[in-house]
Design a protein around this nucleic acid. Structure first.
Length: 673
DNA sequence: GTTTACGCATCCCCG
DNA sequence: ATGCGTAAAC
């Protein structure tokens, strides 16, 4: 059993030993938040609370795994916390059981965001909106509008007025598309990510008996990262704790950075209003960063007004002031970063103890070129997730139709893989299957001509192989892979060997799942699983981390570089147009600097690429106390006078392959049309 | 009528 | 890299 008073500081201890009732824990960056939660759980268990009486909601799967692991270490046994996980995991578990109450079959499919976008494309096409008759938002934008609306709990009109005023004239059409989209999903017995939350809320609010059952069971509700919850999540949490009122939320309003997916800082700020009897605790002792870094961080966040005032205190000895490096251009910024990294490595800081952070993914392009040139191993956090790779999704689509024959989205994917079957034939086959109901696939009359018929036969062969398998997730994947899929990959892609290896990894992952639906759900809900290729590396090699700031949240490194701190880039121009956008950008900067333990380097280029004038230093650099960092300038002083007449000739050109824009923009790119 | 091949725009703010 | 619109091929 842990020795609480010895292993926790007084602030943390107070939270852990808090009795009953609502409770808000404002946990600053690096203040031992995870530690506090895990000790709290251990404490509750020690008080005789049963594992199934604790609901522990986290933001990511990784956080859930880590907390479960650490609680296990504390209580020293193979403890099972059945209700610890992300909102989506918990929702899935409940929805699976109560699907019929909501009009779903319990074998419902889960659509990932690409699937859902494809359905929206169909809806748009149906309305004749695919042609550019009149300007209409793209499928991606429509998806964003619908998703945001559902998560923030406001009417569509409000969301469009606030966030998408340029589409106000299409408001009725958008509403109609949202309806069509919803209906298509329902017909396919499928839920998208938002449905997982919306349907759970429906289940609890419309079925008092179900709500009572869970609310009675959950004597203690704990929510991590509460500053990033959206309206529907916050409502769900409220329902779960409606009987015992033992709701403990942990978060840091200063790190609320997910408003683009409807997270709202107001939930944490208004917690006391919502739960008037709430006790508030603050964790302000920071175990991560030097005082030099924290002084800068505190000064950054002090510029925000909509927040709980906090002051992080360091317990570490001073080290060095943060550095601000003003660079002539992107290449020099990259060189500077690489030079510093090599110098630190020389001092014994290995590459994996350092990270370069940036506001937007493409900011790292110039740096990556330099890293390749200088032969520095790095890993880019981001890119296509394992379960979103095309070939993985192909195989999953076969498994999905096997589990849920009405999954038209998966069917469409399966059919389009066949040569000879295009959109028209696919549609015909899908509607035949839908109306056929329980009739075996092979018996369905389709009346196809020769070429499509051949493709269909191949699908049937794979289906039969799945029928003959042991029907476990691993067996089904094997059946698909052993059938014609390898040939298909071979015919389509030169790198088919790598792709087949991924599918082996998939089969391996499938071995861990309870049953096939569980496997499919896990696969779709694993937001950050990319382990396959990393684990199969022959030798472990420490790598420098490149990451967006969003992805860096919750992590820490010995040395952190925040690059591209130029006006227009960070704060991001588009983000500034949002209401309360500036404060969120500032929080993002705060998140970035609080990742650093010992060394913090800030940098920005004056020009980037060819003839592109950056906007000078970020306002975040200008507004803070200039004594809090050491400013350095590059050696090669350049003459920028030729750029000052940046009239309508200024062109935004990115450096390489990616996608350079050939069109001239009417004004500086900073205006961002 | 359907499918496929090919050129060109677009994806990039953030998960 | 991917996704689309268009035009040739089945």
């Amino acid at each position: 059993m842990p020795n609480y008073s010895q292993e926790l500081n007084p602030e943390q201890l107070a939270v852990v030993e808090h009795g009953d009732g609502p409770c808000l824990v404002l946990a600053g960056a690096g203040s031992g938040k995870t530690r506090t939660i895990t000790y709290r759980v251990a404490y509750l268990l020690e008080q005789g609370v049963k594992p199934e009486e604790i609901l522990l909601v986290t933001f990511t799967n990784k956080a859930a795994r880590e907390m479960i692991f650490r609680v296990q270490q504390l209580v020293g046994s193979q403890l099972y916390l059945p209700w610890a996980g992300t909102f989506h995991h918990i929702a899935y578990k409940m929805l699976k059981k109560y699907a019929p109450l909501l009009g779903y079959e319990s074998n419902f499919s889960i659509l990932d965001s690409e699937d859902s976008r494809n359905v929206i494309k169909l809806c748009l096409k149906e309305k004749g909106l695919d042609k550019k008759i009149k300007k209409f938002p793209s499928a991606r934008v429509v998806q964003g509008i619908i998703s945001f609306t559902r998560n923030c709990g406001k009417p569509l009109e409000d969301v469009i007025e606030d966030q998408y005023p340029q589409w106000l004239q299409h408001i009725d059409m958008l509403g109609s598309i949202a309806k069509d989209y919803s209906q298509r999903k329902k017909e396919a017995n499928a839920m998208d990510f938002d449905d997982m939350l919306v349907r759970l809320f429906e289940l609890l609010s419309q079925n008092p008996r179900v709500r009572e059952l869970f609310a009675q069971q959950f004597r203690y509700v704990l929510v991590d990262e509460y500053q990033d919850t959206n309206a529907i999540q916050s409502a769900i949490v409220g329902l779960f704790s409606s009987v015992h009122k033992n709701i403990l939320v942990v978060g840091d309003d200063a790190q609320s950075i997910y408003s683009f997916r409807a997270a709202d800082i107001e939930h944490i700020l208004a917690f006391e209003k919502h739960y008037p009897s709430a006790r508030v605790f603050r964790l302000e002792v920071n175990y991560r960063s030097t005082p030099d870094i924290l002084s800068l961080a505190n000064d950054v966040i002090a510029k925000n007004t909509n927040q709980y005032k906090k002051e992080l205190r360091s317990i570490i000895d001073p080290h060095v002031k943060p550095t601000l490096r003003v660079c002539a251009e992107q290449a020099e910024e990259a060189e500077f970063i690489v030079d510093e990294i090599l110098a630190l490595e020389e001092e014994g800081v290995s590459f994996d103890k350092m990270a370069v952070l940036f506001r937007a993914a493409f900011h790292s392009q110039a740096l990556e070129m330099e890293l390749v040139k200088r032969d520095i191993p790095y890993e880019y956090r981001g890119g296509v997730r394992f379960f979103e790779r095309a070939h993985i999704k192909d195989v999953l689509a076969y498994v999905r139709i096997f589990v849920n024959k009405t999954d038209t989205i998966a069917w469409s994917r399966v059919l389009h893989m066949q040569v000879g079957i295009g959109p028209a034939t696919a549609l015909r086959i899908i509607s035949s299957i839908q109306s056929a109901g329980e009739i075996p696939l092979a018996d369905i009359e389709l009346g196809l001509s020769a070429r499509p018929a051949m493709g269909w036969q191949e699908v049937l062969q794979i289906w039969e192989a799945m029928e003959k398998s042991d029907k476990t997730a691993t067996g089904l994947i094997g059946a698909v892979a052993d059938s014609r899929y390898e040939e298909y990959l071979m015919s389509q892609f030169p790198d088919y060997r790598d792709r087949m290896q991924d599918i082996e990894q998939l089969a391996l992952f499938a071995g861990k799942a309870k049953d096939v639906s569980q496997f499919l759900a896990e696969a779709t809900m694993q937001e950050q699983f990319r382990a396959a290729e990393q684990q199969s590396e022959t030798k472990y090699e420490p790598k420098l981390v490149l990451s967006t700031i969003h992805q860096a949240k919750g992590l820490e490194w010995h040395a952190v570089f925040v690059m591209h701190m130029a006006q227009g880039q960070f704060p991001n121009e588009r983000a500034l147009k949002q209401t309360k956008g500036l404060e969120e950008e500032r929080r993002l900067f705060y998140v970035a600097v609080t990742r650093a333990k010992k060394n913090l380097f800030l940098s920005y280029p004056i020009v980037a690429g060819y003839k592109m004038l950056m906007g000078g230093p970020s306002m975040f650099l200008q507004e803070i106390d200039q004594d809090l960092f050491e400013e350095q300038r590059g050696n090669n002083d350049m003459d920028y006078s030729h750029l000052s007449d940046a009239d309508d000739g200024v062109v935004y050109e990115s450096l390489d392959n990616g996608w350079s824009s050939p069109k001239k923009r009417p004004t500086s790119f900073l205006m961002d049309v």
